[in-house]
Amino acid sequence: MDVKERNKKYNEYVDAKVPKTKNFPTLIYAYLVGGVICMIGQGIQDILLALFPSLTLEDAGAWMLIILIFFASLLTGLGWYDRIGVFAGAGSIVPITGFSNSIASPAIEFKKEGIIFGLCVKMFSIAGPVIVNGVAISVLVGIVYLFL
């Protein structure tokens, strides 16, 4: 039997052997945690609008995101966000707090290699692709819109 065929057979065998269990509860945890984070966001936004009536809805939304980002960074620093993540999975990755965690966690982790080449360089090792692709898609949308 040649190597390619052997490897193909082995990979198929391993794929069949890999346990596929206990996936369902994680969906519920992700739903719950994600939903609650969004509700907290809505709460912050409503409080801001009530306290500062002059605020536009858009500005209140921006403030709300900044506040959520602040608390996610703080929880990351305290070492709690990764514990939420173990439980919630995408429930704490997909909200903007997950974006904040993905910037704060490498920054904290690589501080020991120096402020510039450790902290600052590694800060975007996970969130970098988000910003790069985000900018790319916004430019693309802008170009398409220009010609419409």
């Binding site: 890999v18 173990v86 704490s92 965690n101 966690s105 904290i108 690589f110 996970i126």
Partner: peptide, 17 residues
Amino acid sequence: ERQYRYPLELGNQRPPV
């Protein structure tokens, strides 16, 4: 973990395998 995988404080789930 930091050499082969992710920062310790990143909130991700380890795969079951």
